[in-house]
């Protein structure tokens, strides 16, 4: 047996609490002073540990534990009582009617939220359309008033020229105004403005009828105003 084996076997015997040293270990220490000293040191340790008594706890340990236990128990009881009292109070009681009201209020809030969202999306598409219309208006050629070239107008001739120029200027202004109004106002459909947002009849996924709910009315109105202007121009032509 080697010294390494001896130490392992010695520890095993300690782990198993063997009261006597096995014979093979006794045989080894009989001719190995180092292992004998080691065994004596362990033996001495065991003797010292056996005398290593623990003094008992104070007599108040049980009382202290029970006191703390009672305090904890009372705390738990008072907490549970206050909780259960709170559940029984009328202010915290939930009736079925209250539940339905809460459900109804939630549904109403949802509808309002959806409506606001739809409105915002409409405004966004309208703003996009308005921006593009502004660009188009800027490209419309404006008919400018030419200065009167005739240096010597006289009598009715001068008046005719003035009325004619005024009529042309009025017509140009009216046409420009109609272009602008029809392009920007939801009331009047843009008859000659191409749809720049998406396909036909739709604007950003919103149909034309939805984005311009009053378009049919606007078309009739436009035709009526156009016919009225034509009559005015004709009457002026006939008068001149």
């Amino acid at each position: 047996m080697t010294c390494f084996d001896f130490e392992n076997r010695l520890q095993e015997s300690f782990d198993l609490r063997q009261p006597e040293l096995p014979d093979e270990l006794c045989a080894h220490i009989s001719h190995c002073p180092a292992c004998r000293e080691m065994q004596e040191r362990f033996q001495q340790l065991h003797v010292a540990v056996a005398d290593w008594q623990v003094q008992p706890p104070t007599a108040e340990l049980a009382d202290a534990v029970l006191r703390r236990l009672r305090t904890e128990h009372n705390l738990v009881i008072s907490t549970s009582r206050s909780t259960s009292d709170g559940q029984r109070s009328p202010s915290h009681r939930h009736s079925p009617l209250t539940g339905w009201m809460a459900l109804l209020a939630s549904a109403l809030a949802l509808v309002i939220a959806v409506g606001i969202g739809w409105r915002v999306s409409s405004n966004v598409s309208f703003a996009k359309r308005q921006t593009s219309s502004q660009t188009q208006i800027a490209n419309i050629p404006v008919k400018r008033l030419e200065p009167v070239s005739d240096p010597t107008p006289t009598g009715d001739r001068q008046l005719d020229v003035l009325v004619h120029d005024a009529r042309d200027a009025y017509a140009a202004l009216a046409s420009q105004a109609w272009q602008q109004v029809s392009a920007t106002n939801v009331l009047l459909p843009p008859t000659d403005t191409p749809n720049l947002f998406g396909g036909e009849g739709s604007t950003d996924g919103v149909s034309e009828s939805l984005s311009r709910p009053l378009a049919p009315l606007g078309k009739e109105l436009r035709e009526a105003v156009d016919s009225w202007l034509q009559q005015v121009f004709n009457s002026q032509d006939s008068s001149t």
Binding site: E40, R41, F42, Q44, L45
Partner: peptide
């Protein structure tokens, strides 16, 4: 634990033979 404690006691001058 046994080895460390035994070593500590040896360093502290506890004579195992006298103890036994």
């Amino acid at each position: 634990a046994r080895k460390e404690m035994a070593e500590y006691l040896r360093k502290r001058g506890l004579d195992p033979q006298q103890e036994l």
